[in-house]
């Protein structure tokens, strides 16, 4: 019963379509936010009070890894890096 798909009864096509439409709107906006973030400096708040910043390049579609450049860490700079989304609490950028 935790799956959002299964909550829409098989007889209720309208409910399923509303849910699909909602998922499309939410996902499209999120993907657009990722494209908008490309090339911007992003500040990452990670677990254990670790704070870093980097230029965002791309994400995998499962939102598990962010590929970044010029990563500024407390211990130094890395020209290219991958961040695990499971290490990140939040990220912030300006438009």
């Amino acid at each position: 019963s935790s799956s959002s798909i299964s909550t829409a009864g098989s007889g209720n096509r309208a409910d399923l379509e509303r849910e699909q439409q909602g998922r499309v709107e939410l996902r499209e906006r999120y993907l657009r936010s990722l494209f908008a973030m490309a090339g911007h400096t992003v500040h990452f708040t990670m677990y254990e009070r670790v704070n870093v910043s980097a230029s965002f390049d791309a994400s995998d579609i499962d939102i598990l890894n962010f590929q970044v450049s010029n990563l500024q860490t407390p211990l130094g700079v890395h020209r290219e890096a991958l961040l695990r989304c499971s290490d990140i609490i939040s990220y912030t950028f300006e438009l």
């Binding site: 499209e28 993907l31 657009r32 494209f35 990670m46 670790v50 590929q67 890395h78 991958l82 290490d87």
Partner: peptide
Amino acid sequence: METAMQLAFDRNCDEKQPKYWPVIPLKL
């Protein structure tokens, strides 16, 4: 849209060979 994002990710990973930071996950 997903394909465009994933292609950029894959291409950059191929070309730039980024390493995970931090090396050991902070969580779990």
